[in-house]
Simulated scan of single mutants.
Amino acid sequence: MSNWIEVGHVNDIPKLGARVVKSARGDIAVFRTADDEIFAIVDECPHSGGPLSQGIVHGKAVACPLHNWNIDLETGDVLDPDHGCTRVIQVAVTDGLIRIFVEAEATGTNG
């Protein structure tokens, strides 16, 4: 089960900035580049869990505020010379409204 959620308008996020969206599966960082492109990734650096939403956006990447690991916002891959990746969240922008695709938390019963 999954769903799209609205997270605001492009202009709600400053250029080269980010906003955090809370979800049942953890925080999601939504970024705006200098060219007004919008990206979303899990708000956790694969190196030591730093909050990527507090990092510096440059081009289509963000630098983790803890140890300066650079994460590609399109792929979630850590850029050389470091290695790793974080999960990319699907984004749709329509008439300036940002929506992200968030997987619903699984439910089940025992017995």
Rank of each mutant, 00 (worst) to 15 (best):
A92Y: 13
T33H: 03
F39W: 01
T75Y: 03
H58R: 12
D72I: 02
G108V: 10
Q54A: 08
H83S: 11
G84P: 02
A106L: 13
L79S: 07
G59T: 02
W4I: 10
I28G: 00
D82F: 14
E105Y: 07
K15D: 15
A104G: 12
V21C: 12
T75V: 04
I38H: 03
W4E: 05
V30H: 03
C45V: 05
G26M: 09
A106S: 10
P51M: 06
S23Y: 08
G49V: 03
H58A: 11
E37N: 14
R25M: 14
H67E: 09
I98A: 08
A104S: 14
I56H: 00
D80Q: 12
I41F: 01
V10W: 08
D35R: 14
G49Y: 03
G96W: 11
G111R: 05
G49C: 04
A61Y: 03
V62D: 00
G50S: 08
I28L: 04
P51L: 07
T107L: 12
E44S: 08
F101P: 10
H67L: 03
L97E: 07
W4C: 05
A34E: 09
A106K: 11
I71L: 02
D95G: 10
V93Y: 13
V91M: 07
V62F: 00
I98D: 04
W4F: 06
S48Q: 09
M1V: 09
N3H: 13
R32P: 07
P14R: 11
G8R: 09
I89N: 02
P14K: 14
R32E: 05
F101H: 13
I89R: 01
N68R: 12
V62L: 01
P65W: 11
A24S: 10
H58V: 12
G50K: 05
E105D: 11
V78L: 03
